[in-house]
Nucleic acid binder design. Structure first.
Length: 547
RNA sequence: GCGCCUGUAGCUCAGUCGGAUAGAGCAACUGCCUUCUAAGCAGUGGGUCAGGGGUUCGAAUCCCUUCAGGCGCGCCA
């Protein structure tokens, strides 16, 4: 629908002799009576052409030669052009939607370009918390969205299995192991205190008994570290699977060291002249690219920093020939962006090769009261617990009804008590109802096969025309969401669509004695179903047939 | 002190590269199941878009500033 309108206006502007074609903005008028779609293009042109918008609008209208698809073209307000489409056009497009399904709905923006989306990448030192869930839901939906938009998408999880944190986990488990077997051993100051540490220690006792008692941690660290983080990692993997998130690759940080990627990256930067030595440490000259400070990559004790392997990691990503890299980070890492962009530029690439999508913090509430979480004391609500309590679909949907950069208040109690009137059910219910209509139709032996060729002319109730128009707007919403990397636009659209379907369902009987009308209405329902399922699929939310 | 994010209805949040009379859900109140699923529908009330200046045909949106909340500013990860 938008496509046809834009084309029409562009042709008109060409006739008017406009040389540089402006981007044609298309929007939905505030009131149905004004028309179906509108454009403020005459107003934006008035500055350039130095003519009043009303006059430009007049000229545009006069230059529109082919107006068969429009019932009405009006000039309104300060210079809006309002368009109302003919029923015939709507029916034709509805038929196309039914015929082409997803390919009618999805715009090919990516044209096969390769994008990598890296998200969650939580340290394998404990269970995932709700913030990871938000990053996960966002990453998953964005990946689905971009894939649907014609990009070639890879999802990746970066495993921090090399640094201090996994070592600390191993040590924590080691300490627990000793004390469980009655040997006094100091628990590390910043050690992990969650209950899972004890579980890990118990499993090691079950496996090895007291074999590692009276030994120093440095002698057995590999066993404790590897066992602990690998176990945590498989928990994480399982948890994400239950949450409906599957990654294409799991990149190990250790492997980057093992394969010499880290050394290669340092050499690369050194050859480009962005590495120097000072105070016994090795530095990356991040200030050359707008960062506040230069950054240490090898400490004076010879250890690498976290940043160093991250450089190697991103360098490797680029070498894998992705056209675009998207990192999804918790907003608490935002200070990290300038240095990462500096790396990209230092390696000779434009910094927008890497886009960082920040996902804001989640504060957990229960019945309006904040739930205190202290990672130090090992007290926190895990993603697993939230999914078990409120369900994966609801959890995801709540995450996806917010902009990523808005702070999110997640009230477990509200998410649950709302459950009967939860937005996700509202959308899913529309789909379930449609399925039930079709079940009913089949019972009555009404053919439900080739609905795309149905005679739609019976669809003339205002609710029906509004529904059709809403369906035809999906490609526009989809395109906007994909371009802006904002899956939540799909979420809101789906709620609006369901919000049109339910009243329609209440008002109009789909299956009736009028066979022609029944067929047309079934076709409309089928189209709604197609769009609902397409959207839900992108969000990673299920579309149950029965509820 | 510097930087980033946020501030919109009682609550949780949308609001398209600046567009028309600022929206939705929840909560509150009133009705609707003998009929394709009442996880639904119909109706009612609810606003100094944090405050103040500026930019222009036009500002919730852009700029400046004040206030409030959150998060960063390591040879931690």
């Amino acid at each position: 629908m938008k496509k046809h309108l834009v084309r029409t206006i562009e042709e008109a502007l060409k006739l008017l002799g406009i040389e540089t074609m402006p981007a044609i903005e298309v929007e939905v008028p505030p009131d149905d009576s004004m028309g179906d779609l509108a454009t403020p293009v005459a107003m934006s042109l008035s500055k350039i052409l130095k003519k009043p918008p009303g006059k430009i609008a007049d000229e545009i209208v006069l230059s529109i030669t082919d107006r068969t698809i429009f019932e009405r073209i009006d000039i309104a307000g300060p210079g809006f052009l309002n368009f109302k489409f003919t029923k015939e056009y709507l029916y034709l497009q509805l038929g196309e939607l039914l015929k082409q399904k997803s390919s009618f709905l999805r715009e090919d923006i990516g044209r096969g370009r390769r994008v990598q989306v890296e998200f969650i990448s939580a340290n394998p030192t404990g269970p995932l918390h709700l913030g990871h869930g938000r990053g996960g839901a966002t990453g998953e939906a964005l990946s689905n969205l971009l894939r649907a938009a014609g990009y070639n998408v890879d999802r990746e999880y970066y495993i921090n299995d090399a640094g201090k944190q996994v070592k600390l986990l191993g040590l924590s488990v080691f300490a627990k192991y000793q004390s469980l077997l009655g040997v006094e051993y100091p628990f590390p100051d910043d050690g992990y205190k969650g209950g899972y540490v004890e579980d890990l220690a118990k499993e090691l006792i079950r496996k090895y008994g007291g074999k590692y008692l009276q030994m120093s941690f440095s002698d057995v660290s590999d066993i404790f570290i590897d066992y602990s983080y690998n176990t945590m990692l498989s928990c994480i993997r399982k948890e994400l699977e239950d949450f409906g998130i599957v990654f294409d690759t799991w990149q190990s940080e250790r492997e980057l060291f093992r394969n010499g990627e880290v050394e290669k990256a340092i050499e690369d930067l050194r050859n480009r002249g962005f590495i120097y030595e000072k105070d016994g440490a090795l530095w990356f000259k991040a200030t050359a690219f707008g960062d506040d400070k230069d950054r240490v990559i090898i400490k004076n004790d010879g250890e690498y920093t976290y940043f160093t392997s991250d450089i190697a990691y991103h360098r490797k990503k680029i070498e894998r020939r992705y056209d675009e890299l998207i990192d999804i980070w918790g907003a608490d890492h935002h200070g990290y962006i300038p240095r990462m962009h500096a790396v990209i530029e230092a390696l000779g690439y434009p910094k927008d090769k890497l886009k960082v999508l920040l996902v804001q913090m989640v504060s957990l509430m229960r019945g309006g009261k904040p739930v205190q979480m202290s990672k130090r004391a090992g007290e926190f609500v895990t993603l697993r617990e939230v999914i078990d309590e409120v369900g994966a679909d609801t959890t995801k949907f709540i995450f996806l009804t917010r902009r990523p950069d808005s702070h999110l208040e997640f009230d477990i109690e509200a998410a649950k008590t709302q459950s009967s009137e939860n937005p996700v059910f509202y959308v899913q219910y529309a789909n379930a109802r449609i399925n039930s209509i079709f079940a009913h139709a089949r019972e009555k032996n009404i053919p439900v096969g080739t609905l795309c060729d149905a005679d739609f002319s019976g669809l003339s109730v205002p609710d029906e025309l509004r529904l059709i128009k809403k369906l035809l707007m999906y490609p526009m919403v989809f395109e906007g969401a994909a371009n802006a990397h904002e899956p939540h636009r799909i979420t809101f659209y789906l709620q609006e669509l369901a919000g049109m379907f339910h009243p329609y369902y209440n008002k109009c009987k789909v299956v009736s004695d009028d066979t022609v009308l029944t067929e047309a209405r079934l076709a409309l329902c089928e189209a709604v179903r197609i769009v609902l399922c397409d959207g839900l699929e992108i969000l990673g939310v299920t579309a149950p047939e029965k509820m």
